[in-house]
Amino acid sequence: MYEFDFEKPATVAEAVAALGREDAMALGGGQTLIPSMKQRLAAPSALVSLTGIAEMRGVCTGDDAALCVGGATTHAAVAAEAAGRYPALAALAGNIGDPAVRNRGTIGGSLANNDPAADYPAAVLGSGATIVTNNRSIAADDFFEGLFTTALEPGEIIVEVRFPIPERAAYAKFQQPASRFALTGVFVAKTANGVRVAVTGASESGVFRWGEAEAALSADFSADAIAGLSVPADGMVSDLHGTPAYRANLVKVMTQRAVSAA
């Protein structure tokens, strides 16, 4: 790993200022960034740790309409603190990686990285959450822009994620057992305005919504409602763990499992 300058600001404003340096990067829990830096896939000149910013940590309980999660909140904290208000989100957070990873990794770090097989993008897109940064709010539908790419500008920080609470929701993950990333994971949320279905791990373009299933499930929220649908294999990931056709089939199967569990 190449050397870099390390900074750990105590406020969002200080972090934004520190990230103004050329080639500076934000550091969440580092569970992806540090291994990437060891491989020299990332070589920032400065790292700005966001874990010391108290205002970015924790799950708020004061808002009736939404659950807000600070950007620097660890997966373990979401699993524990969101369980009462949004159990589907807490369950997803509690099954990311392993316990030691969950004690460091953060929601903001996961979303800013936008790994195509990460779990949180499915929850955020499936819930229709809002990503609040240091200078604006971004709807989930506008946030994810493909593999490892988001709407974030350089130096922009995810301060908070606001999840509207659905009537029913569940996440079903077909796990790659070695990495514990999603081979395919589907987050389903039923709200008064209809059903949202978000899929991670399957597509070469990263997390996406399965519109056909959303329409069918909005009319009839049951696993049988999508029994006749199929997902095209075009654009699905092909690797040693599965073919595009296998993943396309998994999208449907995991959607059905999520609906049954919701």
Partner: peptide
């Protein structure tokens, strides 16, 4: 692999994936 797990403020973490300064 988890061989490097230590506790930081009571929580298990992988010490090979945490900077000492942090």
């Amino acid at each position: 692999c988890g061989a490097c797990v230590v506790h930081v403020d009571g929580k298990a973490v992988k010490s090979c994936t945490v900077f000492a300064s942090d």
